[in-house]
Nucleic acid binder design. Structure first.
Lengths: 175, 175
DNA sequence: ATTCAGTACGTTATAATATATCATATGTTA
DNA sequence: TAACATATGATATATTATAACGTACTGAAT
């Protein structure tokens, strides 16, 4: 018997699955902010209004968001926001594991589980721009094994898989 | 009995291992150009002097090279080279599998086996900037399995592992 | 040989992404 | 309250990449 997509998505190694079109996204944001507060409190670092606001903007979708896109939105409420305003907030959020950077897109995405420390493994849908975040031990092991065999000491993994998510396949977006 | 690093490096799934400090690099370049000629002939595409020159510059080391670094070197012989000169050549070389782009570094590296079509899996040494290129089926399988379980159709893998290579570990570069 | 289409490259300008630097404000600690 | 660290404001600039248009070359069809 084959595992359903839902089962696979519930697997602990899927940190954040692809979200259904009509899910309660407000709840996602609320949870992300709560997790961030808790994480910052634990770290003894200050989750300022600016940083909170940028994090909320990153979470405006489950897709990657560019720094200048964030800047524009930020300017809605902070007329004089400048690139460093955004980049400093992004740096803070990354240092504290609240967001990840998608290298292949020069963009940023909210972390689905800031409580747990982990590197980045992402499935990125070309069509709907949604991102699923993984912490797949099989991928990690395969990488580590090969690295070990070559005497290479792994410090940081970047795994970014571009393709088409199940929903978009079903919808027949073949572009 | 443990496999030696050399055995692991000779494994077919290691497309290009880390090179010893004193290897005959001229030979690497010669081979890369020969492979490129053969690949372009097969593709019916024209391996022009400019493209050859840019490929040679990419192969000036086994590390990733930035586009503007290439541009500067290119200007040694082509006074009026401009960004598009380099980027067009890089695009061509990528389309024909002669180089890979390292997303996490905005840089380019020669492909160790242009004859064989493959995505990008790279080990990148923070200290010596050397890159080892892999086509590790275990990594590929682990990715594919998880993607399949989620109904995700993989189109492009980006696997970039940052760390320290065996030589640099041995040399005790702990920076 | 001439026209034509496609390809490659030159040239200028500009877009998109990211950082450096110094000034100002705020908050914490001694 | 002085001293220090942290956070943000503000201006300038660095780095990476593409757009747009023009010219020259190439090779096939007429």
């Amino acid at each position: 018997m084959e595992k359903s997509i839902q089962d696979a998505a519930n697997d602990a190694q899927v940190i954040a699955p692809f979200q259904s079109h009509g899910h309660d996204h407000g709840q996602c944001v609320v949870e992300a902010i709560a997790a961030a507060e808790s994480r910052c409190e634990k770290d003894g670092s200050s989750f300022t209004p600016l940083r909170r606001q940028v994090l909320e903007l990153v979470w405006s979708s489950h897709g990657p968001v560019g720094a200048y896109e964030l800047l524009e939105k930020l300017r809605g409420s902070r007329r004089n926001a400048a690139p460093p305003t955004v980049y400093r907030a992004l740096d803070f959020l990354m240092e504290h594991g609240l967001i990840h950077r998608i290298e292949s897109l020069n963009a940023y995405v909210g972390c689905g589980d800031p409580a747990r420390l982990h590197g980045g493994q992402f499935l990125i849908c070309r069509d709907c721009q949604s991102v699923a975040e993984l912490d797949d031990s099989a991928i990690d092991r395969a990488v580590t094994r090969r690295a070990d065999a070559l005497g290479f000491d792994v410090q940081q993994q970047t795994v970014e898989i571009i393709g088409q998510c199940a929903d978009c396949s079903a919808r027949g977006n073949d572009d």
